[in-house]
Design a binder for these strands. Structure first.
Length: 514
RNA sequence: CGGGGUAUAGCGUAGUCCGGUUAUCGCGCCUGCUUUGGGAGCAGGAGGUCGGGUGUUCGAAUCACCCUACCCCGACCA
């Protein structure tokens, strides 16, 4: 009897918990970061309406709001590339398989994740429906580009004869495919969007200068637009791009203490020139191989942007990359009030637009203000204005900032100017917060036990390394940490390798990475 | 690609172990009224090849086999 009552009580509470859970879900809330960081990230991407998984394994649909962020990134970066003398062009999606075998380490690096086109036709089959036509086999199979070095260098061979044809400074905006085993929205997908710069130079020095210049462009973009502090430097030989002589990178620290490579720039030496026989005649009339670079950033930057700043209420976007910088929510009961508010809003919008600020008036009458507040907060709009009858009376406006969630009521007078300043302040504050976080999560480790503890806890760990790939691999096997960057802001100092105890000339940055 | 898990309406789910009337609930959606300064309330309504296929059975969301997709953990990687 007692048992039955107990059972009923338990059932009752189970139902209650389920009800609570359902309410929680409908409220569009995020899983808190502290509870499950990965889940938080996935929730955020979905609920901020940035992207979703598609019918194709590992490939995502980038939704309009997410794509708008990418467009902003593209616009800024494209301007920076043009300023540094580059031009855009477009090379094919398909690459003949034979091209790949020409640069040995390059093939090795990418062979395992290439999609291959083998046929060019389908046909109807009575039993199986549509099938690949076995009679339509390609003479030479085509690789869907995982990166374009090979096809581009095959092309450059025909473009370069004399030193007068150099340098070639080209960028392309494109999609690439890398058949990844485990994918995550934006961070790692089978197909992704990126830009890849490919340059050809007469001298080694000039090529190195180019690779370094583009790294600085990326670092500037990350810091000034994404409000994301980055370390710059070079990769260890083990982490180098397949086919590169030197790989430069920008490396950022995410809120869960894991590192994320946000952009790379490669000095390719003469590897591709030799593989594709790209020579030029110099002023002394002798044949020389061309020197090369390549550099790229991808839609992964959106993942970095999300993880760098966002909180448990949703996305936090830096004003300089926010598709909508200011959203205005009217608060009204009667039609007349709405009309009067709208009139006032038009004035504000005009002033804001004059200053180049992107503003949206959320005049939907299908949702209540509270709903709109929550929605725009989830989408990370930096500044929200609310205007209601009380504001019209007093000549005020409520200004809420997304980064701190603070609200204040300001006078209408010079409101556009105040908001312009506020946007700048938000941009700075977001950067500062991310910077402070990184500082607080950067540690030194001088012995193996300490190293393991600190790596486990997360963050950047600065430690001495003997410079051998063998040690690097051992460390990775034992701790999952890799050398993220041999950072150029860390001064050389002698010491003992944290793993082997051998001589070391400098500390390098270790972390677990995405 | 290995190991584990999941798949029921747009989303989140109950039911599956132990097969049996018309498949549960919440959110969302539609209509109406009342609401609107932080995710509105009430009333009514629509919406389902139970991931796909094959089988077992009088009868399958439920059992068996196969396939597919997604999630978590490893190996690989921007």
């Amino acid at each position: 009897m007692l048992c039955v009552i107990k059972h009923c009580v338990i059932l009752y509470f189970l139902k209650k918990i389920q009800r609570l859970y359902q309410t929680y879900n409908m409220a569009k809330e995020l899983t808190p970061r502290s509870e499950n960081y990965s889940q938080w990230y996935n929730d955020l991407v979905t609920k901020a309406d940035l992207a979703e998984n598609s019918a194709v394994r590992g490939s995502m649909v980038i939704k309009p709001y997410g794509y708008a962020i990418w467009e902003k990134m593209q616009q800024v970066l494209d301007g920076m590339f043009k300023e540094t003398g580059h031009q855009n062009a477009y090379f094919p999606l398909f690459i003949p398989k034979s091209f790949f075998s020409k640069e040995a380490s390059h093939v090795e690096g990418f062979a395992k994740e290439c999609a291959v086109v083998t046929h060019y036709r389908l046909k109807a089959d009575e039993k199986l429906g549509i099938i690949v036509d076995p009679d339509a086999k390609l003479e030479e199979e085509l690789i869907v580009r995982p990166t374009s070095e090979t096809i581009i260098w095959d092309t450059y061979r025909r473009w370069v004869q004399s030193y007068r044809d150099l340098p070639i400074l080209i960028n392309q905006w494109a999609n690439v495919v890398r058949w990844e085993m485990r994918t995550r929205l934006f961070l790692r997908t089978a197909e992704f969007l990126w830009q890849e710069g490919h340059t050809a130079h007469a001298t080694e020095r000039e090529a190195i200068a180019e690779a370094e210049q583009m790294l600085r462009v990326y670092a500037t973009f990350a810091r000034e637009y994404m409000a994301m502090p980055v370390l710059t430097g070079v990769k260890s030989p083990n982490e180098r791009f397949a086919g590169a002589v030197e790989t430069y990178c920008i490396e950022a620290l995410m809120q869960d203490g894991k590192a994320l490579q946000a952009g790379t720039s490669h000095f390719l030496g003469q590897n591709f020139a030799k593989a594709f026989d790209v020579k030029f005649v110099n002023k002394e009339n002798t044949q020389e191989y061309v020197w090369a670079t390549s550099w790229g950033v991808s839609t992964r930057l959106i993942g970095a942007l999300i993880m760098a700043h966002s909180d448990d209420n949703g996305l936090v976007l830096p004003p300089r990359l926010a598709p909508i910088q200011v959203v205005i929510v009217p608060i009204f009961k009667k039609e007349e009030e709405f009309a009067a508010i709208t009139e006032r809003v038009q004035e504000v919008m005009k002033e804001l637009r004059k200053r180049g600020i992107t503003v949206k008036y959320d005049d939907r009458d299908t949702h209540k203000p509270g709903f709109k507040f929550a929605e725009w907060e989830m989408k990370g709009v930096p500044v929200r204005l609310a205007i209601g009858p009380r504001d019209l009376e007093k000549g005020t406006v409520e200004v809420a900032r997304r980064d701190t969630l603070e609200k204040e009521t300001l006078q209408f007078i010079h409101i556009a100017e105040k908001i312009e300043h506020l946007l700048e302040k938000i941009q700075e504050n977001i950067y500062q917060k991310a910077f402070d976080y990184r500082e607080q999560n950067t540690f030194k480790a001088d012995n193996w036990e300490d190293f393991k503890t600190k790596i486990e806890a997360g963050g950047f760990v600065l430690a001495h390394w003997d410079g051998t790939t063998e040690t690097e691999i051992r460390i990775k096997e034992e701790t999952k940490a890799t050398i993220r960057v041999i950072a150029d802001n860390i001064a050389p100092e002698t010491g003992k390798c944290v793993y082997s105890g051998n001589e070391s000339k400098r500390r390098v940055v270790f972390a677990k990475a995405y």
